[in-house]
Write a protein that binds this DNA or RNA. Structure first.
Length: 750
DNA sequence: GACCTGCTGCGGCGTG
């Protein structure tokens, strides 16, 4: 090949090239070739590619070459790598060790599990690369504010791994704010940021997340790894009974006297037998990830598949993996997936979605439609990495039995339709964007406290400029920030106080909060019991899900009896047993995007056939379309049902909740359920009249509407917001009053 | 109708 341009490889420094030779690589990967010139040039860069496409090296090979060229031996860290997971830091440390040795660059892990003397040593003689979490970085800024400029003045670049995991979250706001604070403290206008991200529908979102306010200037490097293709299937199953709960006044079903024990009956209602039979048949003997959707489903599913394994006298190959299981149990599963050739299926929640190194799997399965297209995309990328093996994802969806007289929501098979809509959005290369309007006031409270601690005090105008003008809190104007400061200083909070010369200081209430190590993360966790068998901790269980000694529970895919509960020590002791009830975890539903629900309507309206549906799912979709026509939902979106009315606005969760609120404000008994709103004791005409009023009136004030909504303290610092500020947060982030007239108009003329 | 993530400094104790 003749090429006047030097290849990426030729432009790397000598030690880096030597390391590549040692690895016996035949060539650089596509994403690495593209990233090298972009990073050598300087400036902000987003590198996006599938997990394990070599993004880490794509960033570090040219960055280490830049360090080599610099040849200054000034004090301070040269590269800062920020990761959302400790486990990922440990993985990356393993991966980068030999490369850094080759380049004679110090590599330091820095997170909560790293001993404090390692950190002390690094602080004393800062150099090379630090791998750190946002929380540890926050702690460093807050506790060692005076050292920040010394530690970071010679930073060549900051690398942010799993950038997509930070986008649109409170933790992402904190991270952006911390990076901004480092730039300000070191007097550097911009320190190059390199974001590593999974492929997203719209890469500009990642660019904007990397450099808020100037995403346009970020260079995008997209890995053009053709992969080995994708095999995708949606499989239909039948539930044993309808899903819409019967009305309170409906006659109770007679006790069934078959011999299924009650606990198995509940398990069967979550996971039909035909589905577990197929899951077993299709996953057995291979390496799989099975995303079950919730921790309860993980337990029920792992328990069922493990029992099938035992019944057939096969060695066990099914293992549960979720956030309430102990670190040791989870690591065993991860290690087995990565290093053990035996067949293994990890039944997991989203825990195995991010980039923890588990090697390649043969296939991915998912139960139910899932709640986002973004995670569907991530999951597919977990398989099909070896040449000749396409990525394989099977979605297993159960719908209620078909009954013409049944509830319309059951007749429409909405879970199946949603699964199809998700796949169609994925094929169209669309994926959920973050909500732009967020105020992120709780995190702004946190960052204001952190800033005061970092500098030992700060003037209100300085804080505003640093956090809201230069920093990421750009939806907060001067007036709102002043309100927030007043709220923080109020008698009920005393988070801050102001000295005679106007400097903001930590108040008595603030001291208590900021002195605890609990201060650094911006998210909360509920209090929990530890579940212990003999000396081994199996995991944790929420305090507010009562259990009693003698009860049974499925946990870690096994069945246990509770022997003892120590409320003071928060320990639940268990021993193995033969039966078990599914555990109970609390969760708040996820929000589904407008685009997905709109696509659901399109799927129901059209007569397109989808190649990826199995026979049963195809038939179920036909039945759903038939019901859609019979209910005349192709022509109208407001239909009578029983003593009430059903509304189908075909909008996402946020707008659906907003309309429900607006109708409650107009004295309707309204509740949203499964993409629709059910109104009881009213007539179609009455509802149509009200919708006309809403359509013709100007959009109501979101703050007034939000006043009718329960405002539970969800984010960590919500409890410090005044009712007025809390209402504003709800109005901006949780509802969408602006769009109400339009939703009402669309309901009247679909 | 859901999931996940993270943590300092210091005092006290045991061990080599």
């Amino acid at each position: 090949m003749t090429n006047s341009q030097p290849s990426g490889f030729d432009r790397l420094s000598r030690p880096v090239r030597q390391w590549i030779w040692q690895q016996k690589w035949q060539s650089l990967r596509d994403v690495q070739e593209k990233a090298i010139p972009a990073i050598l040039t300087g400036g902000d860069v987003v590198i996006s590619a599938r997990t394990a496409a070599g993004k880490t090296e794509a960033a570090f090979l040219p960055l280490l070459s830049r360090l080599e060229a610099k040849e200054t031996s000034a004090d301070g860290f040269a590269l800062l790598y920020v990761s959302p997971l400790k486990a990922l830091i440990n993985d990356q440390h393993r991966r980068l060790e030999s490369l850094c040795e080759c380049c004679d660059v110090l590599l330091t892990k820095w997170h909560g599990d790293v001993s404090s003397n390692v950190k002390a040593r690094a602080r004393k003689r800062p150099s090379g690369i630090v791998l750190i979490t946002p929380e540890s970085l926050e702690a460093l800024l807050v506790r060692r504010g005076g050292e920040v400029s010394h530690l970071f003045s010679n930073l060549e670049a900051v690398i942010i791994d799993e950038l997509h995991a930070f986008i649109g979250t409170e933790r992402g706001m904190q991270m952006q704010s911390i990076l901004n604070r480092i730039e300000v403290a070191t007097g550097r206008d911009r320190i190059d940021r390199i974001g590593l991200s999974a492929t997203l529908g719209d890469m500009r979102l990642a660019a904007e997340a990397l450099r808020p306010g100037d995403g346009e200037a970020v260079t995008l490097v997209e890995g053009n790894d053709p992969g080995n293709g994708v095999r995708l299937q949606v499989r239909g199953y039948l539930l044993e009974r309808p899903t819409v709960p019967p009305k309170a006044d409906a006659p109770e079903e007679p006790e069934s006297d078959n011999d299924i024990p009650k606990e198995d009956e509940f398990s069967r209602s979550l996971l039909p037998k035909a589905m577990s039979d197929d899951l077993f048949r299709l996953t057995r003997g291979k390496r799989n990830l099975l995303f079950a959707g919730s921790r309860v489903n993980v337990e029920v599913c792992a328990d069922r598949l493990r029992n099938m394994c035992d019944d057939e006298r096969l060695p066990q190959e099914f293992f549960a993996h979720h956030g309430s299981l102990s670190k040791a149990i989870r690591e065993d599963v991860e290690t087995r997936l990565r290093d053990d050739p035996r067949p293994t299926t990890a039944v997991a929640t989203t825990t195995l979605e991010l980039g923890i190194d588990i090697g390649d799997v043969d296939a991915v399965a998912q139960i139910g439609p899932g709640s986002s297209v973004a995670s569907l995309r991530q999951r597919i990328g977990r398989s099909g990495r070896r040449t000749g093996h396409p990525a394989t994802l099977r979605m297993f969806v159960a719908v209620p039995p078909f009954d013409r007289g049944g509830h319309p929501l059951d007749r429409l098979r909405l879970d199946l339709v949603q699964a199809i809509a998700m796949v169609e959005c994925l094929i169209a290369n669309w994926c959920e964007p973050p909500i732009k309007a967020g105020l992120h006031l709780p995190t702004l409270i946190h960052q204001t406290l952190a800033l005061i601690l970092q500098y030992g005090g700060v003037l209100p105008a300085q804080a505003f400029k640093l956090l809201c003008i230069r920093g990421p809190f750009r939806n907060v104007d001067r007036e709102l920030f002043a309100d927030l400061l007043r709220c923080m200083a109020s008698d009920s909070c005393r988070l801050i106080e102001q000295s005679g010369n106007g400097v903001l200081m930590i108040g008595s209430g603030g001291e208590e909060i900021t002195e605890s190590h609990d201060f650094y993360p911006v998210f909360t966790t509920e209090q929990e019991y530890r579940i212990v068998h003999e000396t081994r901790t199996l995991g944790t269980y929420p305090l507010n899900s009562p259990l009693a000694p003698g009860e049974t529970i499925i946990f870690s895919g096994r069945r246990w009896r509770i022997v003892d509960i120590d409320d003071r020590a928060r320990v639940i002791a268990v021993k193995p047993t033969r039966t078990g009830k599914p555990p109970h975890f609390s969760g708040r539903g996820g929000a589904i995007h407008d685009c997905v629900v709109d696509t659901m309507r399109a799927v129901l309206c059209s007569s397109d056939a989808y190649q990826y549906l199995d026979q049963q799912a195809t038939r179920q979709l036909d039945e759903a379309r038939e019901s859609f026509g019979e209910l005349q939902l192709d022509r109208k979106s407001v239909i009578g049902h029983g003593q009430g009315v059903l509304l189908f606005p075909w909008v996402g969760t946020r707008k659906l909740e907003t309309l429900t609120l607006a109708l409650i404000a107009k004295q309707f008994k309204a509740s949203s359920y499964h993409h629709s709103i059910e109104l009881s004791d009213c007539s179609v005409n009455g509802v149509l009249e009200t919708l006309e009023e809403i359509a013709d009136a100007p959009a109501p004030d979101g703050v007034v509407l939000a006043g009718n909504l329960a405002q539970p303290a969800l984010a960590k610092f919500d409890s410090f917001l005044s009712p007025e500020l809390m209402c504003r947060v709800t109005a901006t982030e949780r509802i969408d009053a602006e769009s109400l007239p339009e939703i009402a108009r669309d309901l009247l003329e679909p």
